[in-house]
Design a protein around this nucleic acid. Structure first.
Length: 502
RNA sequence: GGGCCGCUAGCUCAAUGGCAGAGCUGAGGACUUUUAAUCCUUAGGUUCAGGGUUCGAGUCCCUGGCGGCCCA
């Protein structure tokens, strides 16, 4: 504590002992003319390649093969004249290195014991061997520091608290292999979706995230400001209105995978920024999108698990194979209530049903909105196996085409898996006059203070007036797809989720 | 938004209102075949923050912060 062995720029007395010790080791290296953070270190082969090439090497064998390897120190077992260390590489592969007095010499062995801590990144050059216990190892002739860690690693064999996992994902990634697996799984899923859509001749585009008007969904937007335009801008809540402009222009199969932003609650299924796939296909409808969506998810499952049966992190298996259940919104409500409910059922009757099942009712709700609330209250959580819920009331789906058989309904489905909504699709409303009426009604709500209502996007309506082909459109939450495939919470599927300031 | 639970050493956790502890990690020492090595010695604390009750508060009360679970 009285030693002045840390640089003056560091408030030494504020640091825990273990961090002071590591800083002191760094300083000692510098004082001895050794780089604690060299620009390069020798590396001729990955740990994974060694494991692959020497998989069959028998116990206590010397190969004569010289290699240089790198990795993070995750276990140290040091003896007087022989030290063992377990190195781990980015892909999770671990390999043992051995440093013996007769190979590296007394001086370098002492420096190893003096300078190397758990968590450091080191490079080791030596011979590939197996130990007397049969452990594949690099028997060092020399070693060097790749990067000195100034903070101690958390205990490797106790789980990190959930909060630390999220706030310090880099630590989570270092100590928990599953955290790294999740990153890989997500990349695999996104790549699979892209390939699935490319195979069906969809084009990938990027549409504006900064928008003058927010639309395409009902949600509260984030507001930001453009100095150049001296105007407020919205972070998009959905790419829908721009993707439809693309379809108007003749991009007949189009999709985007990117972030949307919604200024709403944060919980185990909602993140303020979330990744979404949105896809449109001209001359298709919600039935076509239903088949494709199932195929894309099944192809993603295949990419991740090699099968349509995915295994969640808690070991439960979820079968996403075959055809999926299909029910109608009103059919599901009727079954749950034991009463016949249709689009014709009036608001007063629905309110009586709501009271019967102890659902709180907002007097501003339309009959359609109340029907949806009844569904969410009674049915949603029961839909564990993948289920398409079809045919929603017009009042709650302003951008959806009227149902071709039943007046008052629209051609929209929601896909539920594991009790939450994973995707939605419409036969798109392409009549510009009706579209204008619907958006005008929305804009009146917005002007009246409903922060979730859409604003009137005249440019979008102008585009529609040039004629949009009859189309199917779908949207799916990427984070939620990961949740469905892995069983993880949304904050585990997002690498760096938004957290409250510390 | 409401209810409940939690926040203590670098990490994971203990501690009837009565001396703040353990394991791992760290430091010093022993060990040339270890696998979360082992053995000996030892250091480490603004108990989330701020008030209050009390002779005495990690513990009880209040306010706030952060997190988790359940409900809306």
């Amino acid at each position: 504590m009285t030693e002045q062995n840390t640089p003056a720029t560091e408030p030494a007395e504020d640091l825990p002992e273990q961090m002071r010790v590591r800083r002191a080791k760094r300083d000692r290296m510098l004082a001895e003319g050794v780089q604690p953070y060299p620009v390069t270190v020798p590396r001729t082969i990955s740990l994974a390649q060694i494991r692959e090439q020497y998989a069959e090497l028998p116990t206590d064998t010397a190969t004569g093969d010289q290699v240089s390897v790198t990795g993070r120190v995750i276990f140290i077992r040091s003896g007087g004249k022989l030290c063992f260390v377990t190195l781990r590489e980015g892909d999770g592969t671990e390999l043992q290195a051995m440093l013996s007095l007769d190979r590296v010499g007394a001086e370098r062995l002492e420096e190893w014991k003096r300078l190397v801590d758990l968590g450091d990144l080191v490079a080791v050059t030596g011979e590939v061997i197996t130990s007397r216990r049969g452990e594949l190892s690099v028997l060092a002739d020399s070693w060097s520091m790749s990067a000195k860690a100034l903070r101690p690693l958390p205990v490797a064999h106790k789980p990190l608290s959930e909060e630390t996992r999220v706030r310090q994902r880099y630590v989570d990634l270092i100590v928990r292999p599953q955290a790294r697996d999740t990153v890989r799984t997500r990349a695999t899923v996104v790549r699979s979706l892209r390939e699935s859509l490319f195979r069906r001749n969809y084009l990938e585009v990027e549409t504006p995230m900064l928008q003058l008007l927010h639309g395409g969904a009902t949600a509260r937007p984030f507001v930001t400001h453009s100095n150049a335009l001296d105007t407020d801008l919205y972070l998009r809540i959905a790419p829908e209105l721009f993707l439809k402009r693309a379809v108007v222009g003749g991009i007949d199969r189009v999709f985007e995978i990117n972030r949307n932003f919604r200024n709403e609650g944060m919980d185990s299924t909602h993140s303020p920024e979330f990744a979404m796939l949105e896809a449109y296909q001209a001359y298709a409808d919600y039935n076509v999108m239903q088949v494709q969506t199932r195929e894309w998810i099944q192809e993603a499952a295949q990419a991740v698990a090699g099968s349509h049966v995915v295994t969640h992190h808690d070991g439960t298996e979820v079968d996403l194979g075959g055809e999926w259940n299909q029910i109608t919104l009103f059919g599901a409500i009727s079954e749950a209530l034991g009463e016949e409910v249709t689009i014709e059922t009036d608001l007063a009757q629905l309110q009586r049903y709501a009271e019967k099942v102890q659902l709180g009712v907002d007097p501003k709700w339309s009959a359609g909105k109340l029907a949806e609330e009844l569904f969410e209250h009674l049915v949603q959580h029961t839909l564990q196996a993948p289920t398409f819920v079809r045919d929603y009331p017009e009042q709650t789906a302003p951008l959806t085409a009227p149902h071709r058989e039943t007046p008052g309904l629209t051609e929209k489905w929601d896909l539920y898996v594991g009790g939450f909504e994973l995707a939605t699709a419409y036969s798109e409303l392409v009549d510009p006059v009706v579209q204008r009426e619907r958006l005008h009604a929305q804009s009146l709500l917005a002007a009246g203070g409903d922060a979730e209502a859409m604003q009137l996007d005249e440019d979008f309506l102008r585009a529609m007036e040039y004629g949009m082909p009859p189309s199917g459109g779908m949207g799916m939450g990427i984070d939620r797809l990961l949740m469905a495939l892995t069983g993880l919470g949304i904050r585990e599927t997002i690498l760096f989720p938004l957290v409250r300031p510390e």
